[in-house]
Design a protein around this nucleic acid. Structure first.
Length: 469
RNA sequence: CGAGAAGUAGCACAAUUUGGUAGUGCACUACAUUUGGGAUGUAGGGGUUGCAGGUUCAAGUCCUGUCUUCUCGACCA
């Protein structure tokens, strides 16, 4: 018996990635380009993500709703910048059965206009604010290049849409959710993300400000792993959403939206995975422990049952009659954080073997201490995975003091390059056209300390550039 | 969307050059024996050769279109 062979990560990263997706049974291709089948192993990870994030959203007062799948063309057209940004990548429904529709319907590429169309009916007074809604749903964007999890046409995601009485409150919400994403990705997904502000050129169509979560993959390429937008009130104005404030004056509310997708699963794979397959951070691993009996005599089975009784975390027992080596490999491909090998040899000393998925280190532990040891190592693995990813990312962060240096790094070293930037789009575009690197994000906690490396005018921001998926 | 490559069972491939009964390994099913790093034996099941046309007595093989996947580029909040 053999599992699907995985291409070496350093030999061909792109192939390695698809091999891991397939070998771990996370996804399957469908007949439609860019629409992937998320298999049980993949969906279980999404459910873990969903469970944690959804609870966090609710703790902060958000409620889940479900908006329509379709947007009438006239509704999409209400906000000009927004429609210009999305028109090139929307899918249209033109027929119902055999009959041509009076008005085309677009399959939502995002739901700002749907929420606005609804909010205009339900927001009348300051007492109706804030509106803090979220929905878990799929959207469609007709991407030209597609890859499992990283870029698909049908996207499974979560989108929050909120309306607020004041500008400050809306800005706070935008930042609050940005940090919810940041904390979640750091603490649960073990991703050392960089948060920042998108440039005017890269911001969301229709937003005033777009904040972003930028993760760096093993190969130094960026993955935008979540965004949080502040809209001001121009959508609200375009949609005639207004309310009477505390002084009985008519006001326009302020809006935010924020979203994360199953792309986060792609980030987990590309950050933590290795040549043996997936490596899941313990906190979001659907199965945290797999128990593998070696042989099936009575004493072994008895010990397995004892351990199962002890454990307080989700686990599986592999009682199949496949060879131990096969079971080991399979548990590694699937990325299960801890493997417990129960066999005759160790049992003579009242021990079993604990194997860490992240390091593949084998550790002997006493049978009656399994519970504590497992819990201890789940924590250690979670922490070590983050630190390992952090060290690798830091090793691929560069600073360029002039454009020559920038070009040199861009050509020879994968990763992000930090520069001083004047804030003008021409300089940003020049870099993109000449090096292929796009701006990732303006740093929030670091000021410019020199001149723009392109035009040499006074720097306005510190900003990262990098290649992206 | 442009250039290139590829599609034969779940996976990897053979048969295509020279048109003539679609085959092998792994995976799958049953039973037995095995079990400390990808087990062994025996017996089975699975294919309108991506799809649609065309040429031909005959197409996996030749021709046209189309879809999907991969690589590079363009696009991408």
């Amino acid at each position: 018996m053999k599992l699907t062979k995985i291409t070496s990560r350093d030999e061909d990263f792109a192939k390695w990635y698809t091999d891991v997706c397939m070998a771990a049974n996370l996804v399957s291709y469908s007949n439609i380009k860019g629409s992937m089948i998320i298999c049980p192993n993949g969906y279980a990870i999404w459910e873990e993500i969903q469970k944690i994030m959804d609870a966090e959203f609710k703790k902060l007062g958000h409620q889940n709703v479900q908006m329509p799948l379709f947007i009438p063309e006239s509704l999409l057209n209400v906000e000009k910048e927004h429609v210009e940004g999305f028109a090139p990548e929307v899918a249209w429904v033109t027929h119902g059965g055999d009959e041509k529709l009076e008005e085309r319907l677009c399959v939502r590429p995002t739901s700002e206009v749907l929420f606005c169309d609804y909010y205009k009916n339900v927001i009348k007074s300051y007492r109706d604010l804030p509106k803090l809604y979220n929905q878990w749903c799929t959207i469609v964007r007709w991407e030209k290049t597609t890859r499992p999890f990283l870029r698909s046409r049908e996207i499974l995601w979560q989108e929050g849409h909120t309306m607020h009485e004041t500008e400050d409150e809306a800005i706070n919400e935008t930042l609050q959710m940005l940090h919810v994403y940041e904390d979640f990705q750091r603490n649960y997904l073990a991703l050392p993300v960089i948060v920042g502000l998108k440039t005017e050129k890269e911001k969301f169509a229709g937003a005033i400000k777009t904040y972003t979560i930028e993760a760096m993959m093993y190969d130094g390429v960026a993955l935008q792993n979540g965004t949080s937008h502040y809209f001001g009130n121009h959508f609200a104005k375009a949609f005639n959403i207004s309310f009477l404030d505390r002084d009985n004056k008519l006001q326009t509310p302020y809006q935010t939206s924020w979203g994360t997708t199953t792309r986060m699963i792609g980030a987990i794979i590309m950050t933590h995975g290795d040549d043996h397959g997936l490596v899941l951070p313990p906190k979001i691993a659907p199965t945290k422990v797999i128990i593998i009996p070696i042989g099936n005599d009575e004493k072994i089975q008895k010990t397995v049952n004892e351990i199962a009784k002890q454990l307080d975390v989700s686990f599986e027992i592999d009682n199949s009659n496949k060879s131990p080596g096969f079971k080991f490999s399979e548990s590694e491909v699937k990325g299960i954080p801890i493997r417990l090998e129960v066999g005759q040899r160790d049992l003579e000393n009242n021990e079993i073997t604990l194997v860490r998925r992240d390091t593949l280190e084998k550790i002997k532990i006493k049978v009656n201490e399994v519970k504590n040891e497992v819990e201890k190592y789940l924590e250690i693995i979670q922490k070590d995975m983050y630190n390992k990813a952090l060290a690798r990312r830091n090793s691929m962060l560069y600073t360029a003091n002039d454009y020559e240096e920038f070009k040199n790094i861009a050509q020879n070293k994968p990763g992000f390059i930090k520069i001083n930037w004047c804030g003008n789009e021409e300089c940003e575009t020049k870099i993109k056209d000449e090096t292929g690197l796009k701006s990732r994000c303006i740093l929030l906690d670091e000021e410019s300390d020199g001149n723009c490396i392109i035009c040499h005018k006074k720097g306005l921001h510190k900003i990262y550039f990098g290649k992206q998926y």
